[in-house]
Design a protein around this nucleic acid. Structure first.
Lengths: 140, 140
DNA sequence: GCAGTTGTTTTGAATCATTCAAAACAAGGC
DNA sequence: GCCTTGTTTTGAATGATTCAAAACAACTGC
């Protein structure tokens, strides 16, 4: 629904532009894509656009809370539309593929450290590392 | 003990060099330092060295399991000497300071995802985000 | 329906951490 | 003490991301 994406942008106080719709659209069909993948998906449909614009749009959408940015060690930033819940990720140690994992416990911050070193904890981010199905098949 | 660091290097099958000793030394007194901080600490004591050499040394030490590399979102790679146990980290959302947190549960992988998306899970990495004591004092 | 304001995109350049590669060098085995 | 081979040096390259100014277009109000 194009309309729902428009509404989302408006509610977030952002102007509705073709680029933003296209990026939200692309993220709908390819969760955990990086800026470059999104750019390649979106570019054919937009006359003049650039990887910089995509970065810009992604930064705006992240700041507005419409997309979530994750940065697994060793790969560039990934973006996803699933926001608001406190879910986590599994990253393939071989190919870098990312998949969602539901929160281990119930609500955020979902885990409490045994000793917080004096920090005022806000959230807990869990990243699982393992072999994705495809790489299991390939490497045994 | 200089000797223990030498022994560590030898046991790992690495040659003992001034640079490696210096980097291990620096990491002993500044856990969670990034490559640049280590370079600045180490440079005065070594005639000709460069940030590239430090990167090189850190890569070797990480591969040998003598140091652990962590990459919190939004900052450059940090290194620490505490290896072998499965501990986690708290990162300050304001200044990026990192502190250790003991493993939430007992042994690695320390957590199991509710659904593993077909991945063969190897480890779980937990990053807590919050305000460090200094930033709490500064920003209230 | 149109004009103005202001947020957004474009374009181009710059930054930063990190990696790569070849030549100079030095640690440790003999 | 010499040789082999791993390590450091030096210099350049990469790639993701950010910055900045000018061109542009979405929405507001008329």
């Amino acid at each position: 629904m194009n309309g729902s994406r428009e509404a989302e942008l408006r509610e977030a106080g952002l102007r509705v532009t073709a680029g933003r719709i296209a990026v939200l659209d692309a993220l709908g069909s390819m969760p955990h894509a990086d800026a470059d993948a999104i750019f390649r998906t979106v570019a054919p449909g937009l006359e003049n656009t650039s990887i910089q614009s995509v970065h810009n749009i992604l930064a705006d959408l992240s700041a507005a809370g419409l997309v979530r940015r994750i940065e697994p060690a060793g790969s560039s930033a990934r973006y996803e539309r699933r926001v608001g819940d406190n879910h986590h990720h599994v990253v393939c140690t071989n190919c870098g593929a990312v998949a969602d994992v539901d929160c281990v416990h119930g609500a955020a911050p979902c885990l409490s450290p045994s000793a917080d070193a004096g920090y005022r904890i806000q959230t807990a981010e869990v990243t699982f590392w393992g072999l994705c199905p495809a790489c299991q098949a390939a490497t045994g």
